[in-house]
């Protein structure tokens, strides 16, 4: 009985400590999944809801790697990295998708601004990577073509 109680107490304490660690984490509090941004059908609106502004400065310090022609729109590999200091987040927008915001990554201190992900694209569209660094927004856009295949599509 006692043993079990101790275990429960221990578990509770660990949980509490973990929660405390999360709350004490530097930078913005854990950004919950922001419905208003992820469900927005317009890219500008999605950006504004997520990052506070729909305007980002075009920057060659945001490196975006996307295929020029996607082999299959169901699996499009995307890589984003940045040479900017103090990167807080990296977000990926696909303008012509039904909901343009595909993903947003928090980059805590000690984590490199370098992420890869595989996304779905319904049709040919510009793909935009937005990096938030030092409170400002920077972006790079590239177009990826999505074709209907003969055998593969």
């Amino acid at each position: 009985m006692n043993k079990q109680r101790r275990l429960i107490l221990k578990t509770l304490m660990q949980g509490g400590m973990a929660l405390g660690a999360l709350m004490a984490a530097p930078g913005a509090a854990l950004a919950a999944w922001m419905e208003s941004a992820f469900k927005a059908k317009d890219m500008g609106e999605a950006m504004k809801n997520l990052l506070g502004s729909a305007n980002a400065q075009d920057s060659d310090k945001v490196r975006l790697e996307t295929p020029a022609i996607a082999e299959n729109g169901a699996v499009v590999p995307i890589k984003v990295s940045s040479s900017l200091p103090n990167v807080e987040s990296i977000s990926i927008f696909v303008k012509n998708n039904p909901t343009p915001l595909a993903a947003s990554f928090e980059i805590p201190e000690g984590t490199e601004p370098k992420v890869s992900v595989r996304i779905r694209m319904g049709k040919t569209s510009p793909v935009t990577a937005v990096v938030k660094a030092g409170g400002k927004l920077y972006s790079t856009t590239k177009e990826t073509k999505v074709t209907i295949g003969g055998c593969g599509g």
């Binding site: 660690a21 999360l22 984490a25 854990l30 950004a31 999944w33 922001m34 992820f38 169901a74 699996v75 499009v76 696909v94 998708n97 909901t99 915001l101 595909a102 993903a103 947003s104 990554f105 928090e106 980059i107 805590p108 000690g110 984590t111 490199e112 370098k114 992420v115 890869s116 992900v117 595989r118 996304i119 779905r120 694209m121």
Partner: peptide, 22 residues
């Protein structure tokens, strides 16, 4: 905490993620 990803329906089936940290 070293990484947080917020994802939408437009992420491919069986999501793949990669990142780097110190």
């Amino acid at each position: 905490k070293v990484f947080v990803a917020n994802l939408n329906t437009s992420i491919s089936k069986d999501p793949f993620l990669s990142f780097e940290f110190k």
